[in-house]
Design a protein around this nucleic acid. Structure first.
Lengths: 155, 155
DNA sequence: ATGTTCTGGTCGATCTCGTCGATCATTTTT
DNA sequence: AAAAATGATCGACGAGATCGACCAGAACAT
């Protein structure tokens, strides 16, 4: 379904989504219209969810990053979720299995601000905060690129 | 340091990083060369870390997402970190404060594969796995856009 | 105050790039 | 084996990016 050329296209766009179609075509060894059509179809099929930029939070003054596990008190789930969604500093929120209900990522300017934000949900949920010290892997997509994939166990 | 026009540029590029400079210029009310210069400087200053695409892991066959807390056994920290970095399915890794050392995000094709991957670090670290059920917030940058920011407490 | 410099903008010309229609080759279907 | 569908190329034309020249306003020094 996704051939090698598509993979090359995806990799190139991951590195620089503003690359010209002409250059992209040169890299994957096709003509510009062909590669344009392939990109269009990757979008259409939902493989490419969007073209975007990566912004450095630090450059915007957000010096601190935290990962917080959030366990809403009984009956508070939706209230907590809404509060999280409506607070700009929550930049990622995953609803997960297990004892904790949410795992969220927070970008803040200071410890003070972190404390202040968490105070606001303190009476609605139990939280467990971990400050991010470094990011050995910043963010990468699964399964494309030269890293070899790990096969599933043959069951 | 970052004025309103820059914010508008960032927002527009977040939504579509392939927008033409002409269109971008029209939206923020400047000429094309001006906006080109602003984008160049946002890049130069490191505010824009890169132009990229968002890929849907599901479209590539990665049906499952998990968040795993990893606590390496004594002396195993670097081994564990290297193993994580070298495994394609680990798509995000944060080194954090607290009892757990790493918080990682995994994309896998099946529970089998998840089990297989975690088996490989089972003798080097304690892990605590949470399967992602949904993502109320998929990913957004902090502090730009119309969501109001939460101020830090005045101390 | 006033002249200077620096920053950040516009305009217009030129060159590059994207897109569209026509066409062709290859593979799949019947 | 003929036909249809897929996916590519080519060339032309319109749209976009870029570059140099030039201009306005703020900050600064004299």
């Amino acid at each position: 379904m996704i051939d090698e050329i598509d993979q090359n296209i995806l990799e190139a766009l991951l590195q620089d989504s503003r690359v010209s179609l002409k250059e992209l075509a040169r890299r994957v060894g096709l003509s510009a219209p062909s590669v344009a059509e392939r990109v269009r179809r990757l979008e259409e099929r939902g493989v490419i969810r969007g073209f975007t930029i990566e912004i450095d939070p630090k450059a915007l003054g957000y010096q601190l990053q935290a990962i917080v596990r959030v366990k809403p008190l009984p009956g508070m789930l939706h209230v907590v979720q809404k509060l999280i969604e409506d607070t700009a500093e929550f930049c990622e929120c995953d609803k997960v299995t297990g004892d904790d209900c949410f795992v969220v990522r927070l970008h803040v300017r200071s410890i003070d601000q972190l404390d202040h934000i968490l105070d606001r949900i303190a009476d609605k949920a139990q939280t467990s905060t971990a400050i991010v010290k470094s990011q050995p892997i910043k963010r990468r997509p699964p399964g494309i690129g030269q890293r070899k994939e790990t096969p599933g166990r043959v069951s």
